[in-house]
Amino acid sequence: MTSSAPHLDRLRLRQLRLLELIDTHRSLRAVGEVMNLTQPAVSQMLKDLEFAFGVTLVDRSVRGAMLGPLGQLALQRARTGLAIFDNLAADLHADLPTVVRVGTNPAVMLDLVPSALHHMEAHRANIRFRLEAGTVGNMMSGLLNGDLDCYVGRVDWTATPEQMAETLRYDPLTETSLVVACSVDHPLANRSSVSATELAQWPWTLPSGDTNNRRSIETAFRNCGVQAPVPVVEVSADPTSLLRLTQKIELLTCLPKIVLDTYAAEGRIVPLVTPDLDFLRIQTCFVTLRENDTLQSLQMLREALVHVCLERPDVTEGG
Rank of each mutant, 00 (worst) to 15 (best):
L11V: 08
L310K: 15
V315C: 09
S241A: 13
L242C: 04
Q299M: 10
N213C: 09
L310Q: 15
K257F: 06
L19V: 04
R77C: 06
T211D: 03
H123R: 15
T176A: 12
A133R: 08
R60H: 10
A122Y: 13
V100A: 08
V108H: 01
R244F: 00
P40E: 09
R63T: 10
P69F: 09
S192W: 04
M45R: 15
V179I: 08
T135M: 07
R12T: 14
L173W: 04
V232Y: 08
Q247W: 04
T284L: 12
V235I: 15
Q76H: 10
R26F: 01
K257R: 15
T174M: 11
P275Q: 11
D149K: 11
D23A: 15
L280C: 02
M139P: 00
E33T: 03
I258S: 03
R169Q: 13
T294L: 08
Q227E: 09
A74D: 02
R77H: 04
V233E: 07
F53D: 01
L16F: 13
V100L: 13
D185K: 14
D238W: 03
E311V: 05
V308E: 11
R130W: 08
V315L: 15
V315W: 06
D238G: 03
W157H: 07
N138T: 10
E234V: 06
R169L: 13
N36M: 14
T38S: 15
A196Q: 03
L46Y: 04
S141H: 14
A181V: 15
L310W: 07
T205D: 00
L178V: 04
L21G: 00
P275L: 14
V230N: 06
V270C: 01
D278P: 00
S195P: 02
M140W: 03
S192Q: 12
S61V: 05
N105A: 10
G225Y: 12
V259F: 00
Q44V: 14
L82V: 13
S236N: 11
T205N: 06
D156I: 11
F53W: 13
Q299C: 08
V194M: 09
G103Q: 07
E311C: 13
L49N: 03
R101S: 07
R130H: 12
L143R: 11
S192L: 14
N223Q: 14
L19N: 02
N36G: 09
M120P: 01
